[in-house]
Amino acid sequence: MTMIFGVPLAVFMGQLMLGLINGAFYALLSLGLAVIFGLLKIVNFAHGAQYMLGAFAALLGAQYLGINYWLALLLVPLVVGAFGALLERLVLRRIAHLDHLYGLLLTFGLALIFEGSLINLFGVSGASYPIPEALSGGIKLPFMFLPTYRGWVLVAALVVCLGTWFIIERTRLGAYLRAGTENPALMQAFGVNVPLLVTLTYGFGVALAAFAGVLAAPLYPVSPTMGSSLLIVVFAVVVIGGMGSILGAILTGLAMGLIEGLTKVYYPEAANTVIFLVMIMVLMLRPAGLFGKEA
């Protein structure tokens, strides 16, 4: 049997693949946080709850409306994203002129409200969401067995991440976003409707979280608390990558997933804390993050 540093190749590759898939979720969620922070300067603590709302919307849509996975993948980000846009328009905008801390506290409060309401309605024990038939089973690779759905999650997350990066870095709309991040008052003086841009950006960031939620529904138990535990790790990823850096969020998300996976192979006891250790080191050596601009 082929061994890598004393570990069987299949185990090594299996954990690497698991790490990469976790990393894909980290990347999707930290990307949404980075997009929102970039333009709104809001540390969106409701992001985990919005991810959870995505998973719940898929679950309830299937149970009560018969909406299948593929339709949910399309509809849920739109619906939850629209809800996010409404939230920005009605609630977050009112505190936009205040210190960033207020945005953080407000979104934290919103997350608790979403989570508490769903716990009240459905309890804390998770429900399962079936893997769509077309993606059941697995592929036998030379060194491991890869469940098809996990492969799909990786591909879908990467496509959405790279698509988002392309829109922000290579299109006119993205140029508006980047410029609006730097100098919103001047963008208005050029005739750009910045308040609308802000609303759509928040809605888009929330839609990314909801998309991740739908992708996660068949993998993890769908429960009201599924977002809060993940969010802490995602915040660590964002800090490591650098607040507001789009490419940084994607690459750091994937890298942290891999590091976590490798730690599970060689020192499982540290697997849950390794990302936070990296975060501490980055904060000490490069406080703006690996991809962030030094102040």
């Binding site: 140029a175 980047r178 410029a179 001047l186 050029f190 005739g191 409707n193």
Partner: peptide, 30 residues
């Protein structure tokens, strides 16, 4: 504010307002 430029007004601020995250042509086309 964003309706006023649409009346045909162009504003060039004192601090120039060049966007660091955009290249020259992107700034021009913005």
């Amino acid at each position: 504010p964003h309706h006023i430029p649409r009346l045909g007004v162009g504003y060039c601020p004192e601090e120039r307002g060049i966007f660091a995250s955009l290249d020259v042509e992107e700034n021009l086309l913005l």
